[in-house]
Design a protein around this nucleic acid. Structure first.
Length: 270
DNA sequence: AACGAAACCTGCGCGC
DNA sequence: TGCGCGCAGGTTTCGT
């Protein structure tokens, strides 16, 4: 998936395409994506209008007349907006027919994505948003600092935890820690107040810049059919193993932290 | 409570 | 060409 900037790009694109359209029919080819009975899912959706599309962390929040559809694209989820009747392909799992004669198709090679349909009144207190932390630009510093400094695990793993801070994934955590000058294997308990501050500033900067450029394209991610992010040109360490650090020239190395591919400059990050 | 590993899926590139 | 392995942007679950 897409991390926060990619999801924001998808959100903005969807907004231009499906706002104020009504769902007229739902096709479910792979029911495991939805977290409820497929007949109930279809019945509830049909007839509801798409009134607003928000985003919280990496979740898309589609506000309907009565319910809220919460979408997580995970690793490879994508949407396509095509004329009704366009043939579905191998990895198309859901298809929403819309009142404008178009169809919104959910496509996901690895089938990791999820959709939750929850009533408007409960969507913040039930389901995937229940324990979601705030995003870097709205997080409370004291709260964030306390969560980091009480943990005895690596800072990279802490920053990937969406209950601590939302929106960062593997790419942007590497970029954030590089800009903050911090080694991803440092334990949370050893991170100083000053360093927490640097991390937060770096995270805000990285995400803001990535949103501006429409996200990062690595391998197959596209916001919608044919739209590529341009943040990959801004990456300083992620995917740069063997290349010189843009600050000091030291060769960037690739390691593993908690099983995740991790890129660091051994000179700039301590 | 907090941690790490495994699980959920498929496709791709690599070495043999 | 085929096979097995490791890898991929995320999160949840399970055992310790």
């Amino acid at each position: 998936m897409p991390e926060l900037p990619e999801v924001e790009t998808v959100r903005r694109t969807l907004e231009t395409l499906i706002l104020d359209k009504t769902i007229t029919e739902v096709e479910i080819l792979y029911p495991k994506i939805i977290q409820m009975d497929e007949h109930e899912f279809s019945e509830r959706l049909i007839g509801q209008k798409i009134n607003r599309i928000d985003r919280m962390g990496k979740h898309l929040i589609i506000h309907l007349d009565h319910d809220v559809l919460i979408v997580h694209l995970r690793m490879e989820g994508r949407f396509f907006y095509h004329p009704r009747g366009t043939r579905l392909t191998k990895h198309d799992h859901l298809c929403f027919h819309l009142s404008d004669g178009m169809q919104l198709t959910y496509h996901d090679v690895r089938k990791f994505g999820t959709m939750h349909l929850i009533s408007q009144k409960d969507y913040l207190t039930q389901g995937p948003l229940k324990d979601l932390a705030k995003e870097p630009n709205e997080i409370d510093f004291q709260e964030f600092k306390a969560l980091i400094q009480k943990r005895k695990t690596e800072i990279k793993a802490i920053l990937l935890d969406q209950k601590v801070i939302s929106g960062l994934g593997n790419i942007y955590v590497d970029e954030t820690l590089f800009r903050a000058g911090i080694d991803p294997t440092r334990l949370g308990i050893h991170i100083t107040d000053l360093e927490v501050n640097k991390i937060l500033d770096a995270a805000k900067l990285v995400l803001e810049k990535a949103i501006l450029l429409g996200g990062t394209t690595i391998r197959t991610f596209e916001a919608m059919d044919g739209v590529h992010g341009r943040f990959q040109n801004e990456l300083m360490v992620h995917t740069k193993a063997g290349e010189p650090c843009p600050i000091c020239g030291t060769t960037i190395i690739k390691t593993k932290v908690k099983g995740r591919g991790t890129y660091v400059c051994p000179t700039c990050q301590h």
